[in-house]
Design a binder for these strands. Structure first.
Lengths: 224, 224
DNA sequence: ACACCTCGTGAGGGGATCGTCAGGGATCGG
DNA sequence: CCGATCCCTGACGATCCCCTCACGAGGTGT
């Protein structure tokens, strides 16, 4: 079953999309603001996101960035604005397609099919291995020497962001923004805490980390 | 270099696309009918196809099918028809995106970027190499003979400024302003210190610098 | 030859950052 | 109502980094 996350603050459109998508056999989950969308996506990763730009709480581009930090799920943006710069901004922020309201339902469905087709054909290596650890990003599972390890949602989210950027230095600000969202950029104590949790669960010798390395004053680096 | 195949029978549009794409650094090849498009794609596979539906010889859907038979290259369809069924047909035939004429050039370019991003063919990793040293600005990583070298934040900041201006003489005032910010323009002792640290970590013979050269009385020059 | 300036090098104190532990509040399920 | 789980906050040593100071080397003009 293909899971679709629909984000829109207008109940009318939300209802229309839910009905039409459900009728085609999609599993639909919904959110009516940006924070809810990020939360819903985190706890139950969808295969496709339909995102309205005119949300009441968070700017659309930030929602896209928040998703792109840890997932490559296809994102289709809905917007009432026909302004060209909005389209360019959304697409460059990481969206995959852009449809202006009012839209034809059959066209929207065709675009969703095209996105799913492309996402399915690109088989992106969802398995990341280092040491005795295997991380399956698609299945949300991590094992150490074959034993499954339980991670809390926040731990997993942080691991996903790091694992999708192997070898790259991630600044504290970047990590805080992508895991906790806007407004938590100064909660560095938190980041230290969860980094310690990840290390204690995944590192062979947590006191001397080999894979989740600290770059003092700059950030953290995941190095398989 | 990213190769784009543009297929359109209207010389005006063909020219506009060629100029705009070439200006952005794409390698552009063109065709003015379906048969030519299939031939051109076969003998020199492009990374991206922009396809007009109103071709004189072959129906657009057949061109898409002809390409899809052997390649998964992203296809963006151009069309003058706003009819919804055309969009659905084209997308279901295997196209990845659909834009109606008249179109905004910046929107089209943004859609092309989005498609390339998803296809995974954009990997612009600016690498700077000199001697045995490789500097990866995107990942914030430096290696010497394959061994990773740890740099402190200030060291990295200074290196980044120099590496972004290869061969150019940077005055001390300029460097101090870029790295330490306003108010530190007179801390030349500091600059000497960190330049020495960089040389000791990156130069083959730190006492006789080959890449980080001193221009007495003027400043420093990074020369790969 | 001498004074003067700029640059390179070394050592050490002050301060920021990091890892760790303990504890309270919120949520969920039984 | 109670226990379990998870998230966040605060405090504490330990570590690492940045800056200052002092001294010697090399070049330049008088």
């Amino acid at each position: 079953m293909i899971r679709v996350l629909v984000v829109d603050d207008e109940p009318r459109i939300l209802r229309a999309l839910r009905i039409n998508l459900a009728a085609r056999g999609y599993d639909v989950i919904t959110a009516s603001d940006g924070a809810g969308a990020l939360r819903a996506a985190a706890e139950d990763p969808p295969d496709l996101v339909v995102l309205d730009l005119g949300l009441p709480d968070i700017d659309g581009a930030e929602v896209i960035a928040g998703l792109r930090g840890w997932t490559s799920v296809p994102i289709l943006v809905l917007s009432g604005r026909t302004d060209s710069t909005d389209k360019v901004d959304a697409l460059d922020a990481g969206a995959d397609d852009y449809v202006t309201k009012p839209f034809g339902m059959d066209e929207l469905l065709a675009r969703l099919r095209a996105m799913l087709r492309r996402a399915g054909s690109v088989d992106d290596e969802p398995l990341i291995a280092f040491g005795d650890v295997v991380v399956d990003l698609a299945a949300t599972r991590v094992t150490v020497r074959g034993e499954e390890i339980r991670l809390t949602p926040t731990e997993w989210h942080l691991l996903a962001v790091l694992a999708r950027n192997p070898g790259k230095l991630m600044s504290q600000r970047q990590l805080l923004l992508e895991v906790w969202g806007p407004g938590y950029e100064t909660a560095q104590g938190n980041l230290r805490l969860y980094m310690a949790q990840l290390r204690s669960k995944l590192e062979p010798d947590p006191s001397r980390p080999a894979y989740f390395r600290t770059e003092p004053g700059m950030g953290y680096r995941f190095d398989p």
